[in-house]
Every structure is written in C-alpha cells, then in structure tokens.
Design a protein around this nucleic acid. Structure first.
Lengths: 140, 140
DNA sequence: ATAGATGTAATCAGAAAGGTTACAACAATA
DNA sequence: TATTGTTGTAACCTTTCTGATTACATCTAT
C-alpha cells in the first residue's frame, strides 16, 4: 500500500504551470501530456489546487496560473490539498479491538502517540521543501 | 489512502503474545479475539513475524512465543516484517511522465530525494520505539 | 487414534484509484 | 451572435488491494 500518486501528479502539475507560464497556455490537456495521465485526472487535481488557493484556473479561455509564489507552497501543502490520506491519519488502525481484553482495550492508546509522531516526522519533512526547491531542479 | 492496518494488528499481536505469555496459550484464535479480526488474518501475520525471526509458532500444539526481547523489536522492524508498503517506497510515483517534456523528463529526479527524506523521517521515528515501550502502557 | 492447532489455498466482497466517455457551462473572439 | 476551445462534473469501468471466510491437509502432544 502506498500513498496515492496524486501528490507527485500535483507537484508535477504545479511545476509545469510555473515552468511554462511564459511559453504555453497550461491547459489540462497540455499538463496531462507532460504528466502522462488522462486530462480529466488533471482537471480534478486542478480543482483541488484551486480550492487550496494555489492557482487560478480560467474557465472558457483555459489555462492555469500560480496564485502564490513557489516559495510559499510546500510539499506538505500540496499533500494536504490533494487529500493523500483519509482524515489526516497516515496509519490505519484495526477497528475492532476487544474492549474486554486488557490488551485490546488499551492498544489504541498505547500506539496512537507513536504513530502520530511518525506521521508528523514525515509531514515536517515534506513541509521543509517548497515548490521553488523543486523548480530549481529544472533551471540548469 | 492509508498504510494497511497490518502494522497495528502485528503490534497488537506481539503485545498479546508477551502480555499473556504466562497466563494463556496464545493461539491464533486467542489473539484474533483480542484484535477483533479473523483468525486466518492473524495466522498470516504470525507467519510474517516468524519469517522475520521475532517469534516461534508451535505447529500441532499451538501458540506463539517471542524469540527476541521486546526491547529488541522496533515498530519499524514490525512495519517491515508485515510489508506495509510495496518495495519500500512510501510514495507512489505516477509512472508515465513524458520523457520529451523538459519537466516530465526530470520530475522524477527532482522529487525523489525529497520524498525519500520524508519516508526516512517517518521510518526513523518508528525505529525509535520498541515493543517494550508499547508494553509499558499495559503495566500500570 | 484423537483433538486441537497451524499452514495455506481458494474465493468473495468492498473500497479506492485512475482511466475514459460524455456533455453542460463558460468565456474569448471572429 | 455563433463558434471554438476549455473547464467542471457526472457516470461508469477496470484494476488492485485488503481483509473475511471456508475448507482442509498437516502436524504434535496426549
């Protein structure tokens, strides 16, 4: 089981929007051909990025543009915008531990803190990287 | 999308094995009733924990016992033993970025390092917690 | 021999992702 | 104002992955 590719697709999408901002109109078709997925998949992600306030999408005429500066958008922001994980919980807990068992009744409390720590360690790492950092890989 | 509950089920399983070691025979049925899942699910996980060298499982007579001390087993060890994530890659990368696009051809290289860092931050956190730490929540 | 377990295959249902088609709504422009 | 190219969005499909469940051969202690 892996975290959905929406994160990498969304990051790729934002990179395309910025990289081609002066060269091409970045329509869902254009982005889709760079990412290698169906345009509708891109449109769905564009909606999520728009809802998050990262981009503007032009109805009618078409094309997306960044609304924030690349250094203001982190991988964690993107990760959250595209709902990579249900209810923000990375680890899925089995749902019916036996409340009448001394272990079953306390296993949730015993593990939750550690699991949350691990999740936050991951999120902190994602939060330390901005879209600018990613774009820097395309300049040279 | 979330990480499979096999991690929490396996941790729960090991906790039961240790907690009840002098009180009960910890068969797959017994463990299953504490965890709240089907006994076959437990047996499959017992096999993985056995393959990892954490436990012995008695055929015939039944019951599982720890083979290592609880302080020698970390949550990361368990996480890896039960294959929570395919090929060790937490993030799923979209598979067909366009090699003829300046962004598509380099997006993998641009993101991989950051994603790996985030994954390792999570794994390091899991690695800092042992089964002993978890068991301590059941002593008081 | 028997009884109680484990090991393991086979099958099923449900969830989630992504692919795809289709089309209404929209905005620029000819 | 009609056309054209896009976006927004619904609907449906396929694939994949869990975990549930049934079934049974195998094993071991008694």
């Amino acid at each position: 089981m892996q975290i959905t590719s929406r994160l990498t697709v969304a990051a790729h999408t934002l990179a395309v929007i910025e990289y081609f901002k002066d060269k091409n109109k970045t329509t869902s078709d254009f982005i889709a051909s760079s990412v290698g997925v169906n345009p509708v998949v891109i449109r769905r992600i564009l909606l999520q990025l728009k809802d998050a306030g990262f981009i503007d999408v032009a109805r009618g005429s078409g094309g997306a543009t960044l609304k924030k500066r690349p250094e203001e958008i982190t991988l964690l922001d993107i990760y959250r915008a595209v709902d990579c994980v249900e209810e923000g919980a990375l680890f899925h807990f089995h749902e019916n531990p036996n409340p009448d068992c001394p272990v079953g009744s306390r296993i949730h409390a015993a593990l939750d803190g550690y699991l949350l720590q691990a999740q936050q360690a991951m999120e902190n790492s994602l939060n330390s990287v901005t879209l600018r950092d990613v774009l820097n890989h395309f300049s040279a």
